[in-house]
Simulated scan of single mutants.
Amino acid sequence: MKLFDLSGRKTLDATSPVSFAEWKEARQGTAISLPQDVEVEELHSYLGSLSLIVLEFPIFRDGRAFTQARSLREYEGYKGEIRASGHLLPDQAIHLRRCGFDSVVLSEDANVKDWEEQLGRYQFYYQNTVISPT
């Protein structure tokens, strides 16, 4: 597993996430993996104790994790790391960052240079974003 930093922080959480089902049962741990069928509002009372939330993209065309990330940042005010995992392409790098993702889990054979090039592709945006301008 390789982690790619989308946010420019360079300090990514190395904690291994537990499944949401496990975490919900024990409410222990600071890193969770959240499936798409869970509403982020369920985490509202616990966001202060979570340092990492991993959002899954089970298939390329399932974009619900984009909505989850944006909701966590914009509506819930989550400040910890949001990580994308699953079927992702370098072309999605900018959209991931603009929705609030900090990092991406890449396969071992992924070309990091492709991801870096995509992040530098545009200098400004016309649409609103959940991140502050850099």
Rank of each mutant, 00 (worst) to 15 (best):
W23H: 07
W23D: 03
E25D: 13
E25N: 13
A26D: 15
A26W: 11
A26F: 11
R27V: 11
R27P: 07
R27G: 09
R27H: 06
Q28C: 13
G29P: 03
G29L: 05
G29N: 07
A31N: 06
I32S: 05
S33A: 12
L34D: 04
L34S: 00
L34I: 03
P35T: 11
P35C: 05
Q36K: 14
Q36N: 14
D37M: 08
V38H: 02
V38I: 13
V38F: 01
V38G: 03
V38P: 06
E39L: 15
E39N: 14
E39Q: 14
V40W: 00
E41Y: 08
H44G: 11
H44R: 14
H44T: 12
H44E: 14
S45P: 06
S45H: 12
Y46A: 15
Y46M: 14
L47Y: 09
L47C: 12
G48A: 06
G48N: 04
S49V: 14
S51R: 15
S51V: 13
S51M: 13
L52P: 04
L52N: 00
L52K: 14
L52T: 06
I53H: 00
I53R: 01
V54H: 07
V54S: 02
L55Q: 00
L55C: 09
L55Y: 08
E56D: 09
E56N: 08
E56S: 07
F57Q: 11
F57T: 04
F57S: 08
F57C: 13
F57A: 10
P58A: 04
P58D: 08
F60Y: 12
F60G: 05
D62V: 03
D62G: 01
D62H: 07
R64S: 02
R64K: 07
R64D: 02
A65E: 03
F66W: 09
T67Y: 10
T67I: 12
T67A: 15
Q68P: 03
Q68H: 00
A69E: 02
R70G: 04
L72F: 05
R73C: 04
R73G: 01
R73V: 02
R73E: 02
E74A: 14
E74R: 14
E74F: 09
E76F: 11
E76R: 09
G77C: 12
G77K: 09
Y78T: 00
K79G: 15
K79T: 14
E81N: 07
A84E: 07
A84K: 01
A84H: 07
A84F: 00
A84G: 11
A84R: 02
A84L: 08
S85A: 11
S85P: 03
S85K: 10
G86N: 06
G86V: 03
G86E: 06
H87K: 13
H87I: 11
L88K: 00
L88M: 10
L89M: 13
P90L: 07
P90T: 04
P90Y: 07
D91P: 06
Q92C: 02
A93P: 04
A93S: 04
I94L: 10
I94C: 05
H95V: 12
H95Y: 14
H95I: 10
L96N: 01
L96M: 01
